[in-house]
Design a protein around this nucleic acid. Structure first.
Length: 351
DNA sequence: ATGCATGAGGG
DNA sequence: CCTCATGCATA
């Protein structure tokens, strides 16, 4: 179909020219997410115990549960904590705003203030060694099944109404505007700024569809944003565009990004209409970062612990790190990311 | 599409 | 150190 690629940038990306293949909908995958989600949901009874002061027992239990899981899993030919660096030789297309003028960080467009929720009930002081039982290794029998995609959640459009983590406890339920940019009045027309999940959901879907229609990749969209010259907006990564389309961003983030992407979409469609255009440029940087890989067994232990205590103290993190033979910072970040994951739109079960 | 990481802003 | 918005490197 389309002769796609007209305004898309030439040189970059290896895969940019492949037309849409499928997809009327998203690829759901994540049964794993399901698992996590489940794991994250605190079990009342357990919690009672745990805060009663028996972390140890709970941890064992959590681990035992995790172990059960393990049995059903496959063995992973992985080495614990490996960090593989690979230099991808692909053209890493990063967004480099036109001129070499650095693009120092993004103005953090949608920075919103936050008021952490801290629901602490830490039972930290009394840690005995509740980490005694973190069992890292354990090889498992066989079978491979880290199921990755499958699951189809069309997740009905209801994830509660607005949710803004901002202040107040309750990770959700609140409205507010991302005053950051874009936000405008709250009139129903026009359309940005309303924190309705349904609206965001449908917008995300239409966005993806139209984007594909234009023959533009997620990465293209990200870098093209810089061309819009919207005040505090620079380019965004493929990751972010992907997350926006799949709703795996926080509600606030979705709301803040919507007007921007909407602006790009209109501009792109307008440009396509009138044909030609000039592409982008960029890139050149080089700096490879290493990505730590936490092996499945360790990950299971972390998840088990997380289910019991999502916010371990620094000391506990250190202890866990030692038990699992991971760097403390890696464990700390893992917990941070896990918490953040719970807050994503898709997982946010506000009801 | 996602896992792990960085950094800004706030305590 | 946390939360959040984002991104690089990968699967």
């Amino acid at each position: 179909y389309n002769s796609a690629i007209m305004m898309s940038m030439n040189s970059k990306q290896p895969f940019s020219m492949h037309p849409m293949l499928h997809e009327p909908k998203y690829a759901p995958l994540h049964s794993s997410s399901e698992a996590i989600r489940r794991a994250c949901l605190p079990n009342p009874s357990l919690q009672g115990n745990i805060f009663a002061g028996f972390d140890e027992t709970l941890l064992q239990r959590a681990e035992a549960l995790a172990a059960v899981d393990i049995v059903a899993q496959k063995s992973h030919p992985f080495k614990p904590d490996a960090t593989y660096h690979t230099m991808t030789t692909m053209t890493s297309m990063t967004c480099t705003p036109t001129s070499s003028s650095g693009h120092l960080h993004h103005p953090s467009v949608l920075t919103s203030h936050h008021h952490p929720v801290h629901h602490h009930q830490s039972s930290q002081g009394l840690d005995g060694d509740l980490l005694d039982h973190l069992t890292p290794g354990i090889s498992l029998g066989g079978m491979g099944g880290s199921d990755v995609c499958s699951s189809s959640h069309s997740h009905a459009a209801h994830m509660s109404a607005i949710n803004h983590m901002q202040h107040h406890h309750h990770q959700q339920s609140m409205n507010m505007h991302p005053h950051g940019l874009g936000s405008h009045g709250s009139l129903g027309s026009g359309g940005d700024v309303e924190p309705d999940p349904r609206e965001l959901e449908s917008f995300a879907e239409r966005f993806k569809q139209r984007r594909i229609k234009l023959g533009v990749t997620q990465a293209d969209v990200g870098s093209a944003l810089a061309n819009l010259k919207i005040p505090g907006v620079g380019c965004l990564s493929q990751s972010t565009i992907c997350r926006f389309e799949s709703l795996t961003l926080s509600h606030n983030n979705m709301v803040a990004l919507k007007p921007i992407l909407e602006a790009w979409l209109e501009e792109a469609e307008r440009a396509q209409r009138e044909k030609m255009n000039k592409p982008e440029i960029f890139n050149g940087g080089d700096k490879k970062r290493k990505r730590t890989s936490i092996a499945a067994p360790e990950k299971r232990s972390l998840e088990a612990y997380f289910a019991v205590q999502p916010r371990p103290s620094s000391e506990k993190i250190a202890a866990i790190a030692e038990k699992l033979d991971l760097k403390k910072n890696v464990v700390r970040v893992w917990f941070c990311n896990q918490r953040q994951k719970q807050k994503r739109m898709k997982f946010s079960a506000t009801h």
